[in-house]
Design a protein around this nucleic acid. Structure first.
Lengths: 249, 249
DNA sequence: GAGGAGTGCTAACCCAGGTTGGTGAAGGCG
DNA sequence: CGCCTTCACCAACCTGGGTTAGCACTCCTC
């Protein structure tokens, strides 16, 4: 099971070989994107559903005066909204943060998959419901938490999500974000992101260097940020996800 | 067409009489809620999909230390996520802000409706995609805009949404929110909400008294808050929605 | 009709985080 | 090779918004 989408869905349900094959067959149309390249731009006509296979990407919106807010991250296995093609135009952009491989699934294939395989369909809906839950938690994050809590919460979430697709190495994961991008995610200035990072390092909670995040004290980080993984709806979300089983990919 | 859901969906597509009847038949199980009463509480088992028929409600999350963030508002015609029943437990609460009437649609009825009526199904997906788009815009709102812009943006959005279900009176609408609730929505303190409201009033942009919001200068409010209605995906979103045609409900 | 709760509103003070303007180190490139 | 860009990091200063602590009004309710 090298398809990260299947790996992710396995957190919700067990899929048959036939369903796995159907998914693999639908994700053959793959394109590569360089770091900082847009996968889809705001205003584009909506097309197929995108699936991130490798790399790291984000959803973002720009204000007219140039301010940018990142509203979601995509880790491998993440789909952009299953039914976007119902809308006429994208109201936001999707951009590769690191070099990425993205599969495009046509509306027809989505409709066929969801028509033919009810279990798979439930699993796909689960993944979009989780995506919505994450968006709500991000509102809480920027609305209620201070800088330190916000950043700690984001790091906890990302570790859990990388674990869910087996892309963690223990409490470490690849996180190729600049401090400016972190700032645009957390609604802070890049200067303050720097200050906050230093504080997290000073408290020996994390290290973040050359694109690798290591959480040195997950429990403390969770406590500090009021992190409760329920919103990720991982069936094993009991605080000790199984990601630890398979370190080093 | 007194069902606000049908009124809302008519912004996306034209539904047949049969489809309208099917919707009306499915929304017979109605319960009333008092202001400030929870419709669903965090941790509850997920049940049927809820449809707000009358009143005003919100989705909110609490942090362990008591901080509360409102992450969405429901105006009549809004559904809570079409497929919640796929998840096991609610990761947030839904509460009535004003006295409200809420219909509950069973998972079976949802599956039946979406199975039998493709046009209706598309319309329902449209409404959930819009809801997600609103959540993303709220992240931008708290992440990038300052207090004045934030509040102005919220008021613009609410006017557009009330218009979409015909519940505006020109540029006025019923908005039974306390300043504390506004604060919990915008990620501000109630004191600063008060200051910000006064500033908007001083600039002759809005009035808000005894539960009624009146936007005195919509264009200025939109410009101030960088409001772009595209994310609401109303087909007539050309800046002058048709809500004006039918004033006084 | 007195007490209490909820709400709008205000003033005074304060601090978290923004802003501006840097430095230095690492990498890409002509 | 020097030049340019990008990024992490830092210091000084400033401000938007938080905090605390009130007052006034309305609406309950006993």
């Amino acid at each position: 099971m090298n398809n990260p989408l299947l790996r992710k869905l396995s957190n919700f349900t067990r899929l048959s070989d036939e369903e796995c094959n159907a998914v693999n067959d639908s994700t053959q149309d793959v394109r590569e994107f360089a770091a900082r390249e847009d996968v889809i731009s705001q205003g584009d006509r909506t097309g197929g559903v995108k699936l991130l296979l490798e790399g790291f990407a984000c959803r973002y919106k720009m204000l007219e005066d140039g301010r940018r807010q990142i509203v979601a991250y995509f880790v491998p296995g993440d789909l952009c909204d299953l039914r976007v093609f119902i809308l006429k135009r994208m109201d936001h952009s999707i951009g590769a943060v690191a070099a990425s491989k993205v599969a495009s699934i046509s509306p027809e294939n989505i409709l066929k998959l969801t028509h033919d395989y009810p279990t798979l369909t439930r699993a796909l809906w689960w993944s979009t419901l989780v995506e919505e839950a994450i968006a709500r938690e991000w509102i809480v994050n920027v609305g209620q938490r201070n800088a330190l809590e916000r950043m700690a919460h984001l790091f906890c979430e990302l570790l859990y999500r990388f674990r869910a697709v087996g892309l963690n190495q223990g409490n470490s994961c690849t996180l190729p974000l600049t401090q400016v991008e972190l700032a645009e995610t957390l609604g802070l200035s890049s200067v303050h992101v720097n200050r906050t990072l230093q504080e997290l390092r000073r408290q020996k909670l994390i290290t973040l260097e050359s694109g690798t995040l290591t959480i040195q004290d997950l429990d403390a980080l969770k406590e500090l940020s009021f992190f409760n993984p329920d919103y990720l709806h991982l069936d094993y979300s009991d605080g000790q996800p199984r990601g630890d089983e398979r370190e080093g990919n």
